[in-house]
Computed example of a mutant assay.
Amino acid sequence: MQPLIGGIIAALIVLIGFNSFVIINPGQAGVLSILGKAQSGALLEGLHFKPPLISNVDVYDVTVQKFEVPAQSSTRDLQELSASFAINFRLDPVRIVDIRRKQGTLENVVSKIVAPQTQEAFKIAAALRTVEEAITKRSELKEDFDNALTARLEKYGIIVLDTSVVDLTFSPEFARAVEEKQIAEQRAQRAIYIAREAEQQAQADVNRAKGKAEAQRLLAETLKAQGGTLVLQKEAIEAWREGGAPMPKVLVIGGKEGAGAVPFLFNLGNVGDVVKQ
């Protein structure tokens, strides 16, 4: 009997010895409970002693956690706005005992703290702006949301590392209003373009008219200086140009004054008739 009793005692000693220590790995934090009561002071990574048989250690993952949380709110102009946020956070290892006492498990932390506070933070951020501003100034909406959420979760021992807006949607009524507004803006821009094009065309016509008037003025001055001889030369050239025949119908012959003399015009067709006769 003595060897048997000795073996049992030795086995109990070994069992008690193994249950007297706990190893907390990196990225973890533990809470020691004795007879069901959480003890102060978090167990950080390393080897820790715990009273055998009457104690228990709850181990928490304090690495980065990521959860996607939906939220809904009304904007300043009373439009419904829905969003979905991806939230990266971790539990504060130093405050893990308080989390254990008040919230329990990580699942409770997410469902009872993170999700409701996300909803409240989104309401605060959305109420500061209209639905159009929430869309056009999305980065500002996210900044206000981050500040509100960080302040709310910090008091629970939850550290917010980063957030991102996964989805942002608004009511069908507002979607139709946005579409109608875009169509109206496009029409307005088209009208502005047409008006500018007409204005440019009118200015071009004015410039052409001014150019033609200036050309006529210069021509009149030149004709006046030449004594009127250029008038007939000009008409002769225009008559030749407008004839359209391979061989000109009108022949221009300079007078005694040379190139500056009044041209003599006659019809080559008449010459042909004379030769036939």
Rank of each mutant, 00 (worst) to 15 (best):
Q2T: 07
I5T: 10
G7A: 15
A10N: 08
I13G: 10
I13E: 03
S20R: 06
F21E: 00
V22R: 05
V22P: 01
V22S: 06
I23S: 13
N25A: 15
N25D: 06
Q28P: 06
G30W: 01
L32W: 15
S33Q: 12
S33R: 15
S33K: 15
G36W: 15
G36A: 11
K37V: 15
A38V: 07
S40T: 10
G41C: 08
G41F: 05
L44Y: 10
G46H: 09
G46I: 10
H48W: 10
P52W: 00
V64M: 08
Q65K: 11
E68F: 07
P70K: 08
Q72H: 06
S74L: 12
L78D: 03
S82L: 09
S82I: 03
A83W: 01
A83E: 00
A83M: 04
I87V: 11
L91T: 02
D92G: 04
I96G: 02
V97T: 08
D98I: 01
R101L: 02
L106N: 02
N108K: 04
K112M: 04
Q119G: 06
A127I: 02
V131T: 05
A134C: 11
T136Y: 07
K137W: 04
F145Q: 00
R152E: 01
G157L: 05
G157A: 08
I158C: 01
V160T: 08
V166I: 09
D167R: 12
L168M: 08
T169K: 11
F170C: 00
F170H: 09
S171I: 03
E173P: 08
E180R: 15
Q182T: 12
E185T: 09
E185P: 00
R187D: 02
R190K: 13
A191Q: 13
A191W: 03
Y193H: 12
I194K: 10
I194E: 05
A195Y: 03
A195Q: 14
E199Q: 14
Q200V: 11
R208N: 09
A209D: 01
A213R: 13
A213D: 04
Q216D: 07
L218D: 05
L223N: 10
K224V: 02
K224E: 05
A225T: 07
Q226E: 12
G228P: 03
L230M: 15
L230V: 09
E235Q: 14
E235T: 11
A236E: 01
E238D: 14
A239G: 07
W240D: 00
G243L: 00
L251Q: 07
I253A: 13
K256V: 09
A261E: 05
A261Y: 14
A261K: 13
N267H: 14
L268Q: 02
K276D: 06
K276G: 14
